[in-house]
Design a protein around this nucleic acid. Structure first.
Length: 252
DNA sequence: ATGGCGCGGGGTCCGCGA
């Protein structure tokens, strides 16, 4: 099974890129964030997809689309404050959680919301047996975990996404038994999944890693390969998202 | 291409993103 996570920054603006991505890379499960559209206006991506859409007008929103049957789903949870950011699906006996975490800010109101979002997510996850179930959490976490996840650690010290409290959240997932697939494949090098539109960040390789694929051990045992499609972000046309699509393949 | 932001809503800007 090939699963892709991608913060699209508007699905309507990125439709051709996403359609081509699904075909060219043979995506079975697509988890997208920042769809920026109401459910009724969500466009057709692929005839083979069944989609769970959790959107609203203008901002935020997530969708999970699958070529396999979606056996269960839940749109939203109690960590949302009227901002669609969470979809749970059960696909092929894998519990798939697609999140778009709040950006937060430097210790003001949005910081509190971000902490609340993750507190509630950890609470929601308590129902699972992390040692024995196949669970995958992917999406835009808006956290840069370590110095390998920021292009310049001096510049990012004390800045949003890299605050100690945010970095601790990622560590907590790992302590619970989740495996950071991207970091497992690239244990010692800087790998980025986001480049700001401003300042030519992508051309200067000034990025952040804000997107993650976290899996429990029973699923990691089936892990086959990883692709980080930076080339799509580097092209001028069609206009890319500021995030990079990430694909993981599992033998399931 | 040798600089450099893009999106949606409802506008000829603004708020937001990170």
């Amino acid at each position: 099974m090939r699963i892709c996570t991608f913060n699209v920054n508007s699905i309507r603006s990125r439709l051709e890129i996403v359609k081509n991505l699904v075909k060219e890379y043979d995506i079975d499960v697509l988890c997208i964030q920042e769809i920026k559209v109401e459910n009724e206006k969500f466009p057709l991506i692929d005839e083979e997809f069944e989609c769970v859409i959790h959107g609203q007008k203008k901002l935020h929103g997530v969708a999970t689309c699958s070529k396999y049957p979606i056996e269960k789903f839940q749109k939203g949870f109690d960590g949302e404050l009227n901002e669609p950011r969470f979809i749970y699906t059960l696909i092929n006996n894998i519990h798939i959680i697609n999140i778009y975490a709040p950006l937060g800010d430097n210790y003001a109101q949005r910081f509190e919301y971000k902490m609340y979002f993750y507190d509630k997510l950890f609470e929601w996850l308590e129902k699972f047996d992390f040692n024995n179930e196949k669970i995958l959490i992917c999406g835009d976490f808006n956290i840069s975990h370590t110095s390998l996840d920021v292009w310049d650690e001096l510049i990012w010290e004390g800045e949003v996404t890299h605050l100690p409290e945010e970095r601790a959240i990622l560590s907590k997932f790992l302590d619970m038994g989740f495996i950071d697939v991207i970091r497992k494949v690239y244990p010692n090098e800087k790998v980025f999944t986001f480049y700001d539109y401003r300042g030519g960040a992508v051309y200067k390789k000034e990025g952040l890693r804000l997107d993650y694929i976290l899996v429990t051990k029973p699923l990691f045992e089936k892990f086959k390969s990883l692709e980080i499609l930076t080339s799509i972000r580097r092209k001028r046309k069609p206009t890319p998202s500021d995030h990079v699509p990430i694909i993981a393949e599992f033998e399931v």
